Amino acid sequence: MNAPDRFELFILGPDEKKCAETADTRTPNSSVFTFKKEDHTLGNMVRAALLKDQHVTFAGYKDFELRIQTDGKVTPKEALVNACKSLVSDLETLSREFTKEYELRKIVGDATADQ
């Protein structure tokens, strides 16, 4: 009864930003990105995509503060943008292949039901 509405868990308020970058002064070529109203699902996917980048020397997150360190050839922000673009591409492929497989199974199921 006193619990917040479920949409408040993922809808940003009027003055909230989804992501903010803070330079990490303790290590070179590092930034900390703070994501609002996201969870481990996105955190783990982004971290994994970042670790595929040859210029990323470290990527890790905790409570969805994502720390990225690069070799200096790209900025942490550029590495994050590239990882997100890669993830979107992978998810588009997954969606396309899943839909294709679903439609094929539906056709096969319809054909066997007619027999």
Rank of each mutant, 00 (worst) to 15 (best):
N82F: 00
T99F: 08
N29P: 03
A48D: 04
V74D: 10
G43T: 08
A113D: 06
Y102F: 04
A23N: 05
L9R: 15
L12H: 12
A59W: 01
E38R: 15
E38P: 07
K85W: 00
E65R: 15
S86D: 12
R96E: 02
E78I: 04
A49V: 07
H40F: 03
K73F: 00
T70Q: 05
T27G: 05
A79E: 05
N2R: 14
T27M: 10
G72F: 01
G60D: 02
A48S: 11
T112I: 14
S31C: 06
E78R: 11
T27E: 09
A79G: 10
E97T: 13
E92S: 11
T27K: 14
F98C: 14
R105M: 09
M1W: 03
P4Q: 12
R47I: 02
R6S: 13
D90N: 09
K17W: 02
H55V: 02
K106G: 07
M1Q: 13
P14E: 13
M45F: 10
D24P: 04
F98V: 10
R105I: 07
N44A: 15
L66C: 15
E92H: 06
D53W: 00
V46C: 07
T70G: 08
A83T: 08
L66N: 15
L91T: 03
N82G: 12
Y61G: 04
D71Q: 04
E16L: 07
A79P: 06
N29T: 02
H55M: 13
A111I: 12
E103G: 06
R105C: 11
Y102E: 01
E8Y: 04
L87S: 13
D5P: 00
T25Q: 14
T75Y: 00
P4E: 08
K100I: 03
V32E: 10
E101I: 04
S89M: 01
D53H: 10
D39R: 12
D24N: 15
A3P: 00
D63S: 13
P28S: 14
H40E: 07
T112M: 13
N44L: 08
T34F: 02
P4N: 12
E16P: 11
F10Y: 15
E65H: 12
R105W: 01
N2C: 09
M45Q: 13
K73W: 00
D5F: 05
D114R: 06
A111T: 14
R47C: 07
R105H: 08
Q69M: 11
R6D: 07
A3G: 04
D39G: 11
T41W: 00
D24G: 10
T25S: 15
